[in-house]
Design a protein around this nucleic acid. Structure first.
Length: 668
RNA sequence: GCCACUGUGGCUUAGUUGGUAGAGCGGCUGAUUCGUAAUCAGCAGGUCGGGGGUUCGAAACCCUCCAGUGGCUCCA
């Protein structure tokens, strides 16, 4: 982060003439980035942007993308660059070319470095549309961009470095010599414009940094992330398996994994109880009539597991828990005094994710949501959502020690109301209907047949501002995303940043007007009138699978002791000390501590080596001294060893577990 | 679902241009009774993802299906 120094500049003066610092690569003038080589459009002050600044880094990577396209087009005849933007931590370029294998990345990278070392000037050139069309006549992708983005009679810019020219609005670093630390990372394929039917393109991912040192640091982090892959750690710790032949995409939890899972379930059960959420239990299968009524069949049938019995009745396995909770809610009439009614359940759902989409615990075909549905009055939305946000903050503070959360509020796009469920009012007879119209449909008033129906967004507005109020009352920062709302209502998504700086989407809080209408869920208000409830869907972990994956990657498997499947791994130095070891083990078990005794007759070294990958919280070794002193020799996760009295060890563990401590006490 | 890559015993893997599989870890057996990341020896374990084809001969080449990985699309 460099200081926001400001430099005076006069109209027509080149930015480069006003600065000396070689690290400055672009100028920010009135909020817009300019190449150093360009001139100020008017008098004013500009901020010099350095390589290391966030915006500078983006520019650097964008330039690196050009360098990549430059190298590829010079190596592969007929390769047609499409687009190559910077990304959060690097860049990519989509190129039409024959498929290549990742073995060729080093070759391309070498070419990039070769071009960079030529210290080519990167020039910005402005041309009219006709000239642009001539320049890119051989590249139909660029011609499409010109056709769409450059109006007739206007101009746009290209950037040239040596013999390579790319259509681009820039800005870029002044010369290729800035691109010293570039690295190609992976190869993927994509379709033109992200359209499934679009032409297949080769996408090459890479990254760039101001210097080799920070690039190396990034690569180390990347490697660390790879080592922390929950699929790998989960196998090492023996937590779950996937049997890709028998159940592709379905996790099976082993005994250790089930301990972890149950710890998380137990935590949520307690949190729910403390916050007035009743636990319920619902079937995994419902008749198809249920899914027709809920609307799931209409929208999600192809990703549901459906089947038919011999007598012809149709069923489906649940892809969501809401209908079950709704069914329980419906069993009795509700007064306005009863609300909110809150049902929660670790609800296992099954969704047929398409073959290319499944992967590990983050995208399985079976997962268990820490699901909750609150049935509330409209005036209760704010307080209910506020309470849920509090539960979210508590949960992640407990799980991660310090929760680095970001909030997103997804709201309706009022310029594009198609596909949202909204109230329409007939202009002629004032009849109100609830509908989700698509662009093909046109609505007709069921009462008078008029087609003049006006959307009424009052309820959406009220719900959205309720969510906004709840967020503000919690004093958290949030961003709003227009058009990201669910079709049935606005929602809040919560993201967590992990130890490696990666952001994961976890919690979600959604306001739903749809299901209460589909199922006609009502309460009797104080005036004796029937009103529709509002449903609030909430998941805090998101799913048990996902939170487990995140915990494993965040902690590199070294889970806080309260969550750790093996809290104590205990083994004697030799069989002679087994009786005392068993006594210690039993006392630990009696104290509620998950102790696992290793009877194998191996050397201590070997036993530790064999069991370390299971990440026990503590390793306890019992030998002659321990037997003599009624003590234990304890090794913690960091590898520090300490001898202590058995009771001292048990007290330490109990405190650590009951306070859900993330760190272990230090051994002096 | 689309594109690319990959698929060898429980795990990690070797296998040059095709000549019917090697290893380490783990497992088992025996010896060793051992002090915080490698004690020794022996044994068992593989229809090289499935099926089809080419060939005198296929783990290797071709086709096809399945699965995994990385992306795209999707994610209620």
């Amino acid at each position: 982060m460099s200081q926001a120094v400001e430099i005076d500049i006069r109209k027509g003066q080149k930015f480069s003439d006003a600065i000396r610092d070689h690290d400055v690569i672009v100028a920010k003038f009135k909020g817009k980035l300019y190449d150093l080589d360009s001139t100020a459009p008017e008098d004013g002050v500009f901020i010099p942007v350095k390589l290391r600044d966030e915006e500078g880094l983006t520019v650097l990577r964008h330039s690196a993308a050009h360098l990549l396209a430059h190298a590829v087009t010079s190596l592969y005849k007929g390769a047609l660059p499409n687009t190559g933007p910077p990304t959060e931590d690097g860049f990519y370029y989509d190129i039409k070319m024959d498929p290549i294998s990742s073995d060729e990345l080093p070759k391309i990278e070498k070419k990039m470095k070769e071009i960079a070392s030529k210290n080519l000037k990167i020039e910005r050139l402005e041309y009219d549309k006709d000239t642009l069309v001539k320049i890119f006549s051989g590249n139909r992708f660029k011609l499409n961009i010109i056709e769409e983005k450059v109006p007739d009679g206007s101009t746009s810019t290209v950037y040239r470095q040596g013999d390579f020219v790319d259509l681009c609005t820039g800005p870029h670093v002044p010369s290729t010599s800035y691109l010293k630390a570039v690295k190609l990372l992976s190869l993927a394929s994509t379709n033109y414009r992200g359209d499934i039917n679009g032409e297949p393109l080769v996408r090459i991912y890479g990254t760039a940094f101001p210097d080799q040192k920070s690039l190396n640091e990034y690569l180390r982090m990347r490697e660390e992330a790879m080592k922390r892959d929950h699929r790998k750690i989960g196998q090492e710790m023996d937590l779950f398996i996937f049997d890709s032949e028998r159940a592709p995409g379905f996790p099976l939890y082993t005994p250790y994994g089930t301990i972890l899972r149950n710890s998380l379930v137990g935590y949520m059960r307690e949190l729910n109880r403390e916050n007035g959420w009743s636990e319920v239990y619902t079937p995994h299968i419902f008749r198809d009539s249920m899914w027709k009524k809920s609307g799931h069949y209409a929208k999600y049938r192809e990703s549901m597991y459906t089947f038919q019995m011999d007598d012809g009745t149709g069923y489906a396995i649940k892809p969501m828990n809401c209908p079950g909770h709704v069914t329980i809610f419906e069993r009795e009439q509700h007064s306005f005094r009863d609300l909110p009614v809150r049902y929660s359940e670790p609800g296992t759902v099954y969704r047929y994710e398409k073959s290319g989409e499944v992967g590990g615990l983050t995208r399985p075909r079976m997962f268990t949501i820490d699901d909750g549905h609150a049935f509330v009055r409209e005036d209760q939305i704010v307080s209910e959502v506020t309470a849920i946000l509090g539960m979210i903050q508590k949960t992640f503070t407990d799980l991660f020690g310090k929760a680095d959360l970001t909030y997103e509020l997804s709201v309706i796009d009022k310029d594009d109301l198609d596909n949202y469920l909204i109230t329409y009012r007939c202009s002629r007879c004032q009849t109100e209907i609830e509908s989700r119209k698509t662009s093909q449909d046109h609505l007709i008033c069921p009462n008078c047949g008029s087609t003049d129906l006006k959307p009424d967004l009052d309820r959406w507005d009220a719900a959205t501002s309720a969510l906004r109020n709840a967020l503000q009352s919690q004093g958290v920062d949030f961003k709003e995303f227009e058009g990201e709302a669910a079709f049935y209502g606005p929602k809040i998504d919560v993201h967590l940043r992990d130890a490696l700086g990666r952001s994961w989407q976890l919690s979600t809080v959604q306001v739903d007007f749809n299901l209460p209408l589909n199922f006609d869920l009502t309460y009797i208000d104080s005036g004796g009138e029937r009103k529709h409830v509002v449903m609030i869907h909430r998941a805090i972990y998101g799913s048990y699978e996902r939170i487990m994956a995140i915990l494993l990657e965040h902690y590199a498997g070294k889970l806080p002791t309260w969550l750790s499947p093996i809290q104590v791994y205990i083994t004697p130095v030799s069989d002679r000390f087994l009786p005392y070891t068993e006594k210690v083990h039993e006392k630990l078990l009696a104290s509620g501590i998950r102790s696992f005794l290793d009877y194998s007759k191996e050397t201590v070294n070997k036993k530790i080596r064999m069991n370390r990958k299971k990440r026990p919280s503590y390793i306890v070794i019992i030998g002659e001294k321990e037997v003599a002193n009624s003590s234990v020799s304890v090794r913690n996760r960091r590898g520090d060893v300490k001898a202590m009295a058995l009771d001292e060890f048990i007290n330490m563990l109990r405190a650590e577990i009951s306070h859900k401590r993330v760190e272990q006490p230090e051994f002096q």
